[in-house]
Nucleic acid binder design. Structure first.
Lengths: 113, 113
DNA sequence: TAGAGATATCGAAATTTCTCGATATCTAAA
DNA sequence: TTTAGATATCGAGAAATTTCGATATCTCTA
């Protein structure tokens, strides 16, 4: 049975709940929903290289009020849960939402919770 | 602006994420979705007093493999987050899902996350 | 190849969560 | 009113999370 039919496991869902059990991490996910609104024209929003909408760590940090190391860790937690995807381009690491996981998470809540 | 239009706050949603960041508590919420399936005919499923579908703490405990005190605490966490509602009838405390909160939570995930 | 900027990782202290057994409280029944 | 059963609360030790500053690593450029 393939992943499309199977959907998300309970374990994956609990990892996502853990990732979201922190207001700052929820805020990060929400800000990345509309990068153009939350990050100004001076921000480095990726428009090429097949990673459109990606925002670099320091731009995200400047919106959160937490330290650089905590920002990096929070982004790793969100990425490991599947909610974000990441790509290194040059010296920057860009993060953006993984809409496919978010869609599966919505489906889990709707059908399995 | 009333609650219906306003929807759930970020703070309420984070409380729910915390409540669900534990596999046993997720299991409890899932079992309460279909009490007749998960709790046998010997279970005390409320059918009167306006609290249909409610299950008492000891029946829930017998399905979870955790201690009585932990079961009681987990149910309190779920109730305080709004996911469960509770009613004392005689010497039993019954818990059941609060489908209205769950619906608002689904809406939050869909529209705000 | 040395330096600067961006990000990741490490180590640690403070706080929170997990989970239990013991005990207290509440209710019905003898 | 004493007892028994159901549930809640308390106190505590172990584990996990939070969050930081310091430091390491990576990449571009001088």
């Amino acid at each position: 049975m393939n992943q499309q039919l199977q959907g998300m496991t309970d374990e994956q869902a609990v990892e996502i709940f853990k990732a979201l059990s922190n207001q700052t991490r929820v805020n990060i996910l929400q800000m990345l929903k509309n990068p153009n609104v939350h990050f100004g024209t001076q921000a480095h929003i990726v428009k090429e290289e097949g990673f459109e909408g990606g925002i670099c760590v320091s731009d995200i940090r400047s919106k959160t009020g937490i330290s650089q190391s905590t920002t990096s860790q929070y982004l790793a937690i969100l990425q490991q849960s599947g909610l974000l995807e990441t790509k290194r381009i040059g010296q920057w690491t860009y993060y953006r939402r993984n809409e496919e996981t978010i869609r599966q998470f919505e489906q889990y809540i709707r059908e399995r919770l």
